[in-house]
């Protein structure tokens, strides 16, 4: 792999006596779509919280393009090009589409009064429409409140915000969890669109069909440890689900048979 865009080494997170994540290593190539899978409590959300800046790790290091970084807040992670799209989407339902896309980074324009800058609503409406067009989503009225949109359209608004931040890395936390079949397909299309723009995607999902549909590689967590790190091509949703469900003895046996180091990568 050339210089990875994101590297995590030895990430560990303890909540009191509980170790939610243990010595997690990961390298993500630019433009890659990586899925992080695992059962409930496997440590997926913990990885996301750390990488998105919502929580600091207890130990370990994050490097972006080889440079060590520390995040004190989600805003820090954003400024380093990591945008996270949360399960609950983190949108303000009653605010307009363009206001959601530009939340926290509004476009301002000068006024005749020195030092006074006001919102450039027209520029924001047009730019928001442009971001959505890049995702092949057309919504006529940018002043529509987000609550009036479908689940897939809301995901698009959340992704448009990531594009606005010029994020190199977009983390999507269970993007299809609350969606029906049709909307899920739209979200899969959205992920393909952002992939096509060279953006690195880290996808957290319970839905193995989604993972097989979009990911290049899958990392499987179990009990806070990485147990698999494999390319997705050739896998079926069923075989992937099987890997998540295997118990610890099977994994250990498998590992001995193949004489791979912990966290080693098969298929390379």
């Amino acid at each position: 792999m050339p210089q990875p865009i994101l590297e995590l080494s030895g990430l560990t997170k303890r909540y009191g006596a509980v170790e939610a994540l243990t010595g997690f290593d990961l390298a993500v190539a630019a433009g890659e779509t990586l899925a992080i899978c695992g059962d409930n409590g496997a440590g997926k959300s913990t990885v996301i919280r750390i990488v998105s800046g919502a929580q600091p790790p207890s130990a370990g290091e994050i490097r972006i393009k080889g440079r060590p970084v520390r995040f004190a807040s989600p805003a820090d992670a954003l400024s380093q090009g990591i945008a996270t799209i949360y399960q609950d989407l983190a949108l303000a339902p009653r605010m307009a589409i363009y206001q959601n896309v530009f939340m926290g980074s509004e476009i301002l324009k000068p006024t005749p009064v020195p030092g006074l800058r006001v919102l450039d609503k027209q520029a924001m409406r047009e730019a928001a429409r442009g971001f959505l067009a890049r995702l092949r989503v057309e919504i006529a009225d940018m002043d529509k409140p987000v609550e009036a949109l479908s689940g897939g359209q809301r995901q698009a608004v959340a992704i448009a915000r990531a594009l606005r931040w010029k994020a190199d890395i977009v983390i999507m936390d269970e993007p299809t969890a609350a969606l029906g079949v049709r909307e899920t397909r739209k979200v899969i299309d959205l992920i393909h669109e952002i992939k096509a723009q060279g953006i690195t995607v880290i996808l957290i999902s319970h839905n193995m069909r989604d993972v097989v549909a979009v990911a290049d590689r899958a990392v499987i967590l179990k009990g806070g440890r990485k147990v698999e790190d494999i390319p997705v091509s050739g896998l079926t949703p069923k075989s992937l689900a099987g890997m998540i469900m295997r118990d610890d003895a099977e994994i250990a046996a498998d590992r001995e048979n193949q004489a791979l180091p912990l966290g080693g990568r098969r298929g390379e």
């Binding site: 805003a75 954003l78 983190a90 303000a92 926290g104």
Partner: peptide
Amino acid sequence: GEADEAARLAGI
């Protein structure tokens, strides 16, 4: 006021 968690995550 509308969505404090969303606002916080957006850096407000």
